[in-house]
Amino acid sequence: MKLPIILASTVVLLTACGGGSSSDSNTTPAKKVSISEVTSDQLVYRKLSTITVKGQNLDLGINFSHPGCLKITELTGSTATQKTFSCKIVGVGTVPVVVTDGSGNSIYASNVTIPLAVQPQVTMVTNMGTVVMELNPAKAPITVDNFLNYAESGFYVNKIFHRVISNFMIQGGGFTADLAQPATQAAIKLEVGTGLSNTRGTIAMARTNVLDSATSQFFINVVDNVSLDTSGGGYAVFGKVISGLDVVDKIKDVAVSTRGGMENVPNTAVVINSMLQTQ
């Protein structure tokens, strides 16, 4: 059974419009883009979906807007009556799909529901204990996918909590014990204003002063830091600790000092031994 389309999380121009105009009243009317069918082969969280768009004059240009899909790519073999794309599904729940022509006129609109079998959970084992975090892809789809990509690749193994402030937060995921900083994946879009807040026990992404700059580093709020929801553009919350908050509290109380040009570095390394999705 063919399923409704899941497309790009931002509006993406897939084919540029072109063509000239004429003042001759007897010329053939301008061609218009129309869509007769939009289907997807599957709606599976964090899997690739193949999308087929059928219609007329699709070569004149179409734009997609959808928060449920990441990295849409047009596949080879497109024609004026059919285009095929692939994208990674990262959103869940009911999300709107809108397709417009090259002039911005709406030519297709629908809602689709992306199921989520279980809420993703990640278990982080440190040399001070185990912490289980439940992630929220419905509210922070890009951030959750990014975090799971790092966890699945093994990136977080032997990284440390390099910044610990007892009345604020504990930050890790970017440095080794000797304060080396390995290469990371590309930075992601900042997801704020989603209804998630930097309260005690939540996990959020660290970033630079540039809004869309988060990569691997994350922090766990040890107190309510709701000012971070908007301060400097906000900091994206994407989950919460559901087990092991006592371990977080032990980490926040370790002795720290300035080392390697960084402040609040634990004197004894707090090491992430493993980071695995366990649900």
Score class of each variant (00 low, 15 high):
I5G: 06
T10L: 07
V11T: 12
L14P: 00
L14H: 09
S25K: 11
S25A: 13
S25V: 12
K31C: 10
V33R: 02
S34K: 10
S34M: 06
I35T: 07
S36E: 08
T39V: 15
T50I: 11
I51F: 05
K54W: 05
K54V: 05
G55Q: 13
G61Q: 08
F64R: 01
P67T: 07
L70R: 07
L70V: 06
I72E: 10
I72K: 03
G77S: 06
S86N: 10
G91W: 09
V95N: 01
P96G: 04
D101N: 14
G104M: 06
Y108H: 12
L116W: 06
V118G: 04
Q119M: 11
Q121F: 05
T123P: 07
M124S: 05
V131M: 09
E134D: 09
F147L: 07
F147V: 02
A151P: 01
S153G: 04
F161A: 03
Q171N: 12
Q171D: 12
F175L: 15
D178Q: 04
T184N: 04
Q185P: 00
A186F: 08
G193L: 11
G193N: 08
A206M: 12
A206P: 10
A214I: 02
T215W: 00
S216Y: 05
N221F: 11
V226C: 11
S227A: 15
D229M: 13
D229Y: 14
G232A: 09
G233A: 14
G234M: 12
F238M: 08
G244Y: 00
K250R: 05
D253S: 14
T258L: 07
T258Y: 04
N273T: 09
